[in-house]
Design a protein around this nucleic acid. Structure first.
Length: 414
RNA sequence: GUGGGCGUAGCUCAGUCAGGUUAGAGCCCUGGAUUGUGGCUCCAGUGGUCAUGGGUUCAAAUCCCAUCGCUCACCCCA
């Protein structure tokens, strides 16, 4: 299974994860870690039976007792499950949680899309206020900004609620009824199952028909209209620029009211770097009481790939500071002790474990790009000393073993 | 799920179209250039079931089929 977290990229991952944790800490979100798999039913009910994720993208298997389990394709449903299972609403009427972990979708991999990938996401469970929608958007944008990504676009929309969406769906169906034959085969199916999805079909023939279709904004109820208006007001006051796109429909059924997506021009075909929205009925759907909520999720691989395209600079591994070389194998235990002493004082140190000659050890030290090589030999040990060689200027001198650390540390500050 | 491209050493690749001696290069790695010392240079060396399985042939990395994997696009999404 392809996993884009191997050694050459690990510095990116550390960097991103640290920023996520730091930023979300300041927003009051607590990390939650849920299992990599759940009962299949959770996703079917949560994400929706008509979605692509549930229909064709889940890694589903049976355990020994015949129960159907599924590797999580997304993070929100598991978080809500945990929220309910632990009765978090009793602790706090508004649960602010974030997660960071791998997700699985059974599809053909391609650029920016992997069967196992990583997302971070945040969920605010328990508030119906558009204020929290704005906070979630703000938090996610701040993370991108701290990471150093530029030129990201925020697109927002409202997809209505239980009250007004059915009216809109009916209007859509009325509109497309006579034009069904002009749509692609997928959209003809969507017409019956989930007409909203026709809106973001990328086929030219469908877009042509979508152009004059009824817009959701004519059908939103007062509550949804106000919510959207307030959200825009809050975003404006935060000086967040955005585009309203009434055709933005997300792939998960649970969204209500606010839906948003953040895209990066650099990514090509898979351009969504993150997305989210409000899911007012999900908690209820999963067996809790009505608990309006909003969340966001982003793909780490896509962040890394955008960082690479934008040449974002990150701190990298500092490497090893000191190499302790031995003249012969009889010096090994002394060297081992010296290495230990250096490491205990917080300085990174390495030695040879392959019985290399001193020449080979010097080469290794050079390859490791260390600042100092300490040479341990009988000649030095007789006087309780080691030879310290400064690898940048080649100079060396004998130093008492007890003075090694002060020597290294003071020279380091120069 | 649909359709392209690819799979030869740790890495980047040549060799495949026109089958034919022990499958090559660069980088990396290891060792050496007098005996306790790096970088540059020079010399030498290690390393490959040519993705896997089957077929055609006197002969297959090379042709054919299947499988697996990777990759790109579509769908959709992160």
């Amino acid at each position: 299974m392809h996993q884009k977290a191997d050694i050459p990229q690990i510095d990116y991952w550390y960097y991103i994860e640290n920023i996520i944790k730091e930023v979300l800490q300041t927003y009051g979100y607590r990390e939650i870690r849920t299992p990599a798999f759940e009962h299949t039913e959770l996703f079917v009910r949560g994400i929706g039976e008509t979605t692509d994720i549930v229909n064709k993208e889940m890694f589903t298997f049976q355990d020994r007792k015949g129960r159907s389990l599924t590797l999580r394709p997304e993070g929100t449903a598991p978080v809500v499950r945990a929220f309910l299972e632990h009765n978090m609403s009793r602790e706090n009427p508004l649960a602010k949680l974030f997660y960071l972990g791998n997700m699985f979708r059974c599809e053909k991999p391609q650029a920016g899309r992997y069967r196992q990938f990583n997302q971070f996401g945040l969920e605010a469970i328990g508030s119906q206020s558009p204020l929290i929608d704005a906070e979630i958007i703000q938090a996610s944008l701040e993370i991108y900004k701290k990471i150093g990504l530029a030129d990201l676009k925020l697109i927002i929309n409202s997809v209505g609620c239980r009250k007004c969406r059915p009216k809109y769906l009916k209007a859509l169906k009325d509109y497309f009824r006579d034009r069904k034959e002009l749509l692609c085969s997928d959209c003809r199916e969507r017409y019956d199952k989930n007409p909203l999805r026709i809106l973001d079909c990328k086929k030219k023939q469908c877009q042509k028909e979508v152009k004059n279709s009824p817009t959701i904004f004519d059908y939103l109820c007062e509550d949804c209209k106000n919510h959207f208006r307030k959200l825009r007001e809050y975003l404006d006051s935060l000086e967040i620029t955005y585009q309203v796109n009434p055709l933005l429909v997300r792939g998960l059924d649970y969204y209500t009211k606010t839906a948003f997506e953040i895209i990066s021009g650099e990514l090509g075909s898979q351009n969504a770097i993150g997305g989210g929205g409000r899911y007012d009925y999900l908690v209820e759907e999963l067996g809790g009481k009505y608990t309006p909520s909003v969340g966001f999720a982003a793909g780490i691989e896509r962040i890394v790939s955008t960082m690479e395209k934008q040449a974002v600079r990150i701190p990298s591994w500092e490497g090893i500071k000191v190499f302790v070389a031995t003249v012969s194998s009889e010096d090994n235990s002394s060297a081992l002790k010296i290495v230990k002493q250096i490491r205990e004082n917080g300085v990174s140190a390495e030695m040879d474990f392959l019985d290399k000659s001193i020449k080979a050890q010097m080469r290794l030290a050079n390859k490791l790009n260390v600042s100092y090589v300490l040479i341990v030999g009988q000649e030095e040990l007789k006087e309780q000393k080691v030879t310290i060689k400064n690898m940048s200027n080649g100079q060396q001198e004998k130093v008492a073993i007890s003075k090694i650390l002060p020597y290294i540390k003071t020279s380091q500050e120069e």
